[in-house]
Design a protein around this nucleic acid. Structure first.
Ligand SMILES: [Mn+2]
Ligand SMILES: [Mn+2]
Ligand SMILES: [Zn+2]
Ligand SMILES: [Zn+2]
Lengths: 143, 143
DNA sequence: ATGGTATTGCAAATGATTTGCAAAGACATT
DNA sequence: AATGTCTTTGCAAATCATTTGCAATACCAT
């Protein structure tokens, strides 16, 4: 089942209406890699549905996050990024030159939890984030 | 040498003036754990120097970050947190209940870099972030 | 096709952070 | 200690991302 169909099914199952706006937002995110800022989502979506409003974009991105369809990233202190939620747990590498944000399926978490130093904290972990900033291979080869 | 004295020395060495405002900001951050939002820094500082302006707080926090004296954290999408820069590399655990942000000196980075899967990315790392969200021991014992 | 409810568009509010500018302050020099 | 220069501050307004109230509209079950 495609990401798009799956997302639409979740909306319906949970009693949300399948509006044209929601469809184009989901379509935009499904077709492309992302992540995108709300601004970028607005631009992408405006191609298919000119006249859509920014608050609709925001309201629906947050809804999709709540439903687990979309992932919200805090990469920097400017604004959030949104992308279709990956099926599997992952982290990100972010290029300081071109800004590209890419998934990596390497996760250090399991090992950390088993370290005694961590156990001593008596901290009950719920989520974690791990991001690496640097220069991507494309940008390196340009230099 | 105390954190405060050290920070003041760096300012002077780099040709920045040691204003009363800078002194109280540095003092506020040096005496307490942090991290603090700009708002919180403003409150702390206002005790010692009522009449200080928000833009002064922001301008100086950014200056101190630039000089490496202060560390700026992007914990959530609301606002940034600032704290005196630790001498050693570290990461954070953040309590979802009480909001406390605590340093941990556990870092998974060295191991990650040596994994073949990472090497294949051909990505040149510069910085990284690792944060664990959950429930701290204090909050757990309250339940 | 109709009606009830969720959703949208719009415009205004919010909250964090930034900026231009004139006045005040720091500090090297006399 | 007084002077002059260059920084820095306070203030008020701007900016930018995001949120919100409300009346008009669009879904979709019936
Ligand atoms: Mn790149
Ligand atoms: Mn806690
Ligand atoms: Zn992980
Ligand atoms: Zn590390």
């Amino acid at each position: 089942m495609s990401n798009r169909i799956n997302a639409e099914k979740i909306l319906k199952n949970r009693g949300y209406k399948l509006t044209k706006q929601r469809k184009v937002i989901i379509e935009a995110l499904s077709n492309r890699g992302g992540p995108y800022t709300a601004n970028e989502v607005f631009s992408l979506v405006s191609n298919k549905y000119s006249g859509i409003n920014f608050s609709t974009i925001y309201r629906n991105l947050e809804l999709l996050v709540k439903l687990g369809i979309v992932e919200k990233l805090n990469i920097n202190d400017e604004c959030c990024h949104f992308k279709l939620a990956g099926k599997n747990h992952h982290h990100h590498i972010i290029c300081n030159k071109c800004g590209e944000i890419k998934e990596i399926d390497i996760c250090p978490f399991k090992e950390i939890v088993n370290i005694n130093k961590f156990k001593e904290l008596d901290f009950q972990p719920i989520e974690h984030r791990f991001e690496i900033f640097g220069i991507c291979s494309k940008c390196r080869s340009k230099e």
